[in-house]
Design a protein around this nucleic acid. Sequence first.
RNA 1: GGGCCUAUAGCUCAGUCGGUAGAGCAACGGACUUUUAAUCCGUGGGUCGACGGUUCGAGCCCGUCUGGGCCCA
Length: 500
Amino acid sequence: MSADNTPIEDDLPEQLRIRREKRAGLIERGIEPYPVSVARTKSLKDIREKYTSLDIDVATGDIESLTGRIIFKRDTGKLCFATLREGDGTELQAMFSLDKVGEEQLDSWKSDIDLGDIVSVTGEIISSKRGELSVLANSWSLAAKSLRPLPNEHKPMSEETRVRMRYVDLIVRPEARAYARLRPTVLRSLRETFHNQDFIEVETPMLQVMHGGAAARPFKSFSNAYDMDLYLRIAPELFLKRCVVGGIERVFEINRNFRNEGADSSHSPEFAMIESYQAYGDWRSIADLTRTLIQNAAMAISGSHVVTHHDGRQANLGGQWKEISLYEAISQGVGENVTALTPIEELKKHATKLGIKIDPKWVTGKLAEEIFEHVAREQLIEPTFVMGFPVDTSPLVRAHRELPGVAEKWDLYVDGFELATGYSELVDPVVQRERLVEQAQLGAKGDLEAMQVDEDFLRAMEFAMPPTGGMGMGLDRLLMALTGLGIRETILFPLVKPEE
RNA sequence: GGGCCUAUAGCUCAGUCGGUAGAGCAACGGACUUUUAAUCCGUGGGUCGACGGUUCGAGCCCGUCUGGGCCCA
């Protein structure tokens, strides 16, 4: 509870100390700096919408109580002005005149109230002599005292300060307010698209006894109650497939995954993932679903399929999207026919010629993917489904119905980066067990990203899983693709190292 | 992992050749009843990221570390 006589540390910076002194002064005079409630009859937005075209110097006769954070303050002798701002950025001017509020209240306004304070102002809605829509105070009260000064409104905060103090960023920067509202808009659109196609949303475990569903290093934790290691999930895939076995034929989950790997401008250790499975579908039906999800999301945030990338280029996400074959793209890139059956020695020659640094741990398929990324990068700017990945890097995917060594897996590239992936899912439990055992052997040899043999998952598969198409898409990356923002702008509170 | 850049007032940034630390906004005191980045007069505010070194003397030069950014792998 707030003690009246808490000593104010004198080693504080001047401005912080002065504000603490003002708070203490208010309490001393019996004024609560953090009242439990204040008068509020309308939002600033309500007022803006109600009075759209008042003439200059009009008094409406309407009395309202309004609240907002003070972002500008212009104190003159007997008539003071302030600009109030509320959470969505709507602003309204408040006016305080000597003849309405009296000398004591006007003096208090000037000396007790600072930029950043939140106040409630009760008075008539008017337009000023300059035509500014305003509330002319009959009375006012403090709603919450700010003990820290706001940053300079007119110079943008440095990127680090924006990320470390997002709450301040949201107060001062319109883009921050807009970006914070993008994600929920996209989420609502995604859920609507899923809902319209009879997909059911589920929530599956984040703490897992066994991690699986992707090639990635997990975060490890420990449960005291169960006395065992637990992992933060790297993907929900194996649980969503259990759902399909159980008859939830169209299922999706939008939730966080955690990967204990590098962080850079397009990777965050925790990131939101959309995964979806469609029984009696395949890689093509799930590609259609993915395209619809993305196009509807683009429409939801910009009213169009045309989106703007980070460098200002515009891209049209409308219509059907280009498809290229991974092995055909490689063949074109190296000038020789390359298939999934091409021996690794030959791939290594191609890679060396292209100047790719080869990691000796790479399997044949991984090498092919690296060559592909190297030769096809420029072809992946417009939305493109890259069809037919090597089967040995896709342990949860069904083999291609015609091409040997290839899996029915696509990656969707937009603006040069991988946005989503989709499969015809592997549903044969015997083959699935063989693939996972292979993975476990890689893991035993030191591959930290290899999958484990999940016996319960295999048992579920053995109860028969219908033919299924599945997809996964990073939500943060989707936002980046739709807006051109960096990943730290799409995430409200990205992980930052502590300041001290 | 490698390279480059960066850290100075509450915020955004200057700081020349190594010689007493600067600006704008913000703050404090004063004037002002139509301002809107209000204006005018005056004032205060700094562990220059941390630690070490060179030097008579370091914000500046050197080393190590920490935070942040960019590029490459």
